[in-house]
Each structure stands twice: as structure tokens, then as C-alpha cells.
Write a protein that binds this DNA or RNA. Structure first.
Length: 564
RNA sequence: CGGGACGUAGCGCAGCCCGGUAGCGCACUUGCUUGGGGUGCAAGGGGUCGCGAGUUCAAAUCUCGCCGUCCCGACCA
């Protein structure tokens, strides 16, 4: 491609409404333009890259499954059958047709795939099936943000497996695990596979693929020593042990005026926050539940969901707390409750003694309270892991890091196959409901994550496999016939070798061309300049900013030897 | 949905507090110049000041309403 005839609208300055690196650079490099909040047009450079990413995904997915093309518009009945019409709330884009029939724009394709399976699959002999598609998906995000990282329309590869039983699902799940790793490796990403929360959809096993980086919205816990990695929604850890004072003192109520928060209580009593127990009250279904945590810990919403058995829950309102416990928020505790309330305690409190807890009376707390002795909680894991906690596998300290989710695989179960009536006969002639898996990859997020991990002050560089062009040829002075001719010859030669080449044939000063070449993500540059008459050019490695001089005949070798 | 900020030429901004009919840099056009990290000179083109209403002789500027965009939080199978 000739630059002079291309549409590559680069910007010298960062757009005012962009903050994260990938967003700023995608706009500056002429990859994307915003159409509305969370909606972006992909200009030619972005689309070339996204097509390459999709080609890799398609090629790898074809080794285990078959591609479909499905409608983006779905009838409401389908989503009502799965229960997601109500469940998804405002996140689902809804619309009506001219007959006032309800429709929605698909956020994923479980329903459509399951509907096809329900109509067509009859025998266990047709299983397993792995079906996938790569298409735009829609989510009416409450807050689109960070450029391409959180948008309302995006391209997702999602795949669904149908198996006779759990053992078959294991196999389908493992196939996806392998294929995903190949995809992300081929895309040149430095990624981590982390254990993930399987969500409220009744999944059993789940793994996320993430790229570490500050732009990410996920938090993951990592162990450098043994490789344990988990999303914070799922991660468990052993909190730093805490030695409680050894005393035979009995529980004792004492006044704590104006000490409502853990920080205030710690200041008032002179005890560290770890010696205090934090009591949170949730309404689970329609009943209050008290959850006890170490004072310096936070509750994980996702883990609470698991602890509550998937029931709907929300933090209790102050008046509900008062009615259930006898005290307003800030003085609530697990003993001497006004009404019988189910009490859960995080397992980090197991074995702890003589803690200080709320007194269920405004302005009072109780000290010398020992779990298991003075109250009998149900033990659960609901605390959010913190950096420095001990790894649950090997005991070494965990690191907590932000991450961008690029893929997610998980065992779905039978929710959709059941809800949409997928049934086949097994070998014994019995009707069974196949079990499903669900596997997603965010196509734009691969591009975005690659930029997040490969950028500097001048721009970014993409791995060769997903860059819009492998190499850009930069003639420094087209008025020099030797330079112009050599650049043209190199362009022809490299294209004849089947490479994606961009020739910067614009009448611009060298400085402008160098700046643009650095900006737009192409991993290699060939500068044709002063030594053109001698047939010598420079091959520049964008990532490492290293330049070598070679004769034109050696250019292919130099490109091949460039570290990825 | 709660909190905050912003909206003036394609982009980045000033002007608004203190009302008098819009300016800077970049980009763009033409000519000359320059030619290894966003050359220099000269001459140009381009703006319903987000939208609507109000106050006023007069509104980018003051008042009210609406819309849009971004950030923090909530949310995110």
C-alpha cells in the first residue's frame, strides 16, 4: 500500500477525551474514530489488524469446531425462555419492530445456538458439537469507557460446546484451553490464565485469560513462586496470621460513643483493625444475613454470591439492620442479636479469640468474643484477597494486579440446553439434556491489550502477526532519484515475497515520516536514505529501537531475524 | 443510577469572572524554501461559540432548561 493513497489520519496531539494509552494511541494513529459513547468506527489500519486477529482465531477454532453466522437481532421469546430477558436488565439493547414485537440485540449467542441445537440434535451420536461465530455483540453499558476496552458494540468470538455428559464437557473445555493458548501466543501477547468466578449462571469451572496492565478493569491475584493465578472474585488466600491476646476474660459490653467505622473503633479502643470483627448485613432473598469479617478485610461481592448459594442479595438498608439486629450500622455484631439472624463468618476468623464485635446496641461494642465459643457461625470464604496474603497453594506472598480480560472459558451446565429444550437420546434410548460450555474472546481487546503492553512516548508497535503492515518503507527524500528508485524497488520485491508493506511515498520531510512510522504500530521500518546509491538501507526494529545497515539483498534476512 | 468536569474552526486550547459580535498553535490551500526526527517565509480558506428559551439596546460571556462527551463510584453471564 502506498501511504499517499491511504487513509491514515494521524494526529499530532492526544484527543482531549482519552486517558488510557491504547485509547489515545488508537485515535492518534488513525486506527479508530468515535461515533458516540462506546461506539467506534474502525478505520483501515484498525480493520486490517482486526481482520488478522480474526483470521488467527478462525484458523485455530476450526481445528476444534465449526463456524456459524447468526442474526444479531433476536426475538424476545428466546431470551425469555432462558430467563435472561429479565435477568440482563438494562444491559440488553431492546427494541420493537413495526408490529410492536419485542426484539433485542444479542450480547452473546447461548440462546440462538441452543435453539438450533434444540431443533436439530436428536442423538448422542451427533455429540459432541463445538459451534462458534465471530460477530458484533451489543451491550448497553451503563458507562462505556477507556476507548475500545469497554464499549457498547464489539466483536466477539463466542463458542458453545454440547456434550453428552460432564466427562465430555471436560474434553471440550480442555480443547478450548489449548486453542486459546495457541491463539494468544500467535497474537504475540504476554498473557496469564487465571482461575475465574463462574458467575451466577450456574457454571462449575471457569478460566479467564488476561493481560496484565493498569488499564484493566479486572483484578487478579498472582503467585510468582508457584504460578497460582486467580481473578480476585475467585482467589483465596491465607491472611497474615494474627496472634490474639491469651485471656480468660468473659465477653464484656462497653460503650463506644461515636465509633461507627472500623477506623474510628480502632482509634477509640487502641486495638488494631485486625483485632476487630466487621459485621455486614445483607438481605438474601428476603431474609437478613450477618457476615463477619476481620476488621481490615473487605468482602468480595462475587464470593458473597457463592456463599449465599446464588440467591439474589443486596446490602441491607439501615432500617432493616436496626430491625434485625437491634442496632444501627456501626454497632452490629454476631452475639445478642435482636432477632434470630443467620450468621456467616469468613474462615480467616477461625481460631481467632477475644475479638471485639458490635454490641447490637447503639454506641456499644463487646470485647473478648471468640467465634465458635460465644456464637456459632457458618464458615465461608468471602474476604477479598489483598496483595501480600499467602498463596493458598504454596504460602508465598501473592501479588495483586490489574488486568484486561481477553478471553474466558467456562462450563455452563444445562441452564440453556434445559431452558431451550435441547434433548437427545442416549445409547440406552433415554432422553438426556446435553451439557454446554461457553467460550469467548474479545477481538478488539486483543488489539487493545497488545497496545497496552507495547507502547512508548512516540507510539506503539504490534506483534507482526496482528500488525496492519509488517513493514513500512521510509524514503527520506523522494527528490533524490536513487532514493526514490531504491524505495520503489524494495517495495516491489517485498510485496512479491507476499509481505504486507506500506510505502511512505508522501512528499513530507523525513522527520514527519519517522514520527508517523513510530506512531502507527508497524513493527519494522526500512529507511532508504543517504546510502541508497550504494544499495544500502537501514532496518529499524520499532520495539527495541535498534537499527542495522544492510544491503537490499539482505533485507528479508534482517526482517526475519528481528526479535518478536 | 450517585459524584465531578467539560462542550468556542478538522485537532489541541485561550476568550466567559468584568456583556459590545471571536482569537492562538497545529492541520488545510497556493507560491517559494528546506530535505535524516513534526523546516522556514509569505499570502489565503474555514466557526449556527452544543441546542432551546429568557434577561438586555447588545449574549461565546449572565439566568433557566435540555442534549452530548469524559472521569470517579455503583454496575459489568
Amino acid at each position: 500500500m502506498r501511504w499517499s493513497q491511504s487513509f491514515i489520519p494521524t494526529l499530532r496531539e492526544a484527543p482531549a477525551d482519552a486517558e488510557v494509552a491504547s485509547h489515545i494511541l488508537l485515535v492518534r494513529a488513525g486506527y479508530i474514530r468515535q461515533l458516540a459513547a462506546g461506539l467506534y468506527s474502525y478505520l483501515p489500519l484498525a480493520w486490517r489488524s482486526l481482520l488478522k486477529i480474526q483470521a488467527i482465531v478462525r484458523q485455530e477454532m476450526d481445528t476444534i469446531g465449526q463456524e456459524f453466522q447468526l442474526p444479531a437481532l433476536h426475538p424476545a421469546e428466546l431470551w425469555q425462555a432462558s430467563g435472561r430477558w429479565e435477568l440482563m436488565g438494562g444491559n440488553l439493547f431492546r427494541l420493537k419492530d413495526r408490529w410492536q414485537r419485542d426484539l433485542c440485540l444479542g450480547m452473546t449467542e447461548e440462546e440462538v445456538m441452543a435453539a438450533i441445537a434444540a431443533r436439530e440434535l436428536r442423538s448422542y451420536k451427533q455429540l459432541p458439537q463445538i459451534w462458534y461465530q465471530i460477530q458484533p455483540k451489543f451491550r448497553d453499558e451503563p458507562r462505556p469507557r477507556s476507548g475500545l476496552l469497554r464499549v457498547r458494540e464489539f466483536i466477539m468470538k463466542d463458542a458453545y460446546s454440547f456434550d453428552v455428559d460432564e466427562a465430555g464437557l471436560d474434553v471440550s473445555y480442555q480443547k478450548h484451553d489449548r486453542v486459546y493458548r495457541r491463539i494468544f501466543e500467535r497474537c504475540g501477547l504476554r498473557y496469564v490464565a487465571v482461575e475465574a468466578h463462574s458467575g451466577a449462571m450456574g457454571g462449575s469451572q471457569s478460566q479467564e485469560f488476561v493481560v496484565l496492565g493498569e488499564a484493566g478493569e479486572d483484578m487478579v491475584a498472582l503467585c510468582q513462586a508457584c504460578g497460582y493465578a486467580a481473578n480476585l472474585e475467585k482467589a483465596s488466600a491465607v491472611p497474615a496470621p494474627f496472634a490474639d491476646p491469651d485471656t480468660a476474660a468473659q465477653p464484656e459490653r462497653f460503650p463506644t460513643p461515636n465509633a461507627r467505622t472500623i477506623a474510628e473503633l480502632a482509634a477509640f479502643t487502641g486495638e488494631p483493625a485486625a483485632r476487630l470483627a466487621k459485621s455486614l448485613v445483607y438481605i438474601v432473598g428476603d431474609k437478613p444475613v450477618l457476615v463477619l469479617l476481620r476488621g481490615d478485610d473487605e468482602a468480595s461481592e462475587a464470593k458473597l454470591g457463592t456463599a449465599f448459594g446464588g440467591a439474589e442479595f443486596r446490602p441491607a438498608h439501615p432500617e432493616e439492620i436496626l430491625a434485625a439486629t437491634g442496632a444501627p450500622p456501626g454497632s452490629v455484631g454476631p452475639v445478642q442479636l435482636a432477632t434470630p439472624v443467620r450468621v456467616l463468618a469468613d474462615q480467616s476468623l477461625r481460631g481467632r479469640r477475644n475479638l471485639t464485635v458490635g454490641g447490637n446496641q447503639e454506641g456499644f461494642h463487646i470485647r473478648h468474643v471468640t467465634p465458635g465459643l460465644h456464637f456459632q457461625p457458618e464458615w465461608v470464604d468471602v474476604r477479598e484477597v489483598r496483595g501480600g496474603d499467602a498463596c493458598p497453594k504454596c504460602g508465598q506472598p501473592l501479588q495483586v494486579s490489574q488486568a484486561v480480560e481477553i478471553g474466558h472459558i467456562f462450563k455452563l451446565g444445562r441452564k440453556y440446553s434445559q431452558g431451550l429444550g435441547v434433548r437427545v437420546l442416549d445409547a440406552a434410548g433415554q432422553e438426556i439434556v446435553p451439557i454446554m460450555g461457553s467460550y469467548g474472546i474479545g477481538i478488539e481487546r486483543i488489539l487493545t491489550a497488545a497496545i497496552e503492553q507495547n507502547h512508548d512516548a512516540n507510539g506503539f508497535w504490534l506483534p507482526k502477526a496482528i500488525a496492519p503492515f509488517e513493514v513500512v518503507i521510509t524514503p527520506t527524500n523522494l527528490a533524490d532519484p536513487a532514493v526514490a528508485a531504491l524505495a520503489q524497488q524494495l517495495y516491489n520485491d517485498l510485496r512479491a515475497q507476499g509481505r504486507d508493506v506500506l510505502l511512505d511515498d508522501r512528499e513530507e520531510r523525513p522527520g514527519v515520516k519517522f514520527k508517523d512510522a513510530d506512531l502507527i504500530g508497524i513493527p519494522a521500518r526500512i529507511t532508504v536514505g543517504k546510502k541508497a546509491a550504494a544499495g544500502v538501507v537501514e532496518v529499524v526494529d520499532r520495539a527495541h529501537r535498534q537499527t542495522i545497515e544492510v544491503s537490499t539483498a539482505d533485507v528479508p534476512t534482517a526482517l526475519a531475524e528481528m526479535p518478536e
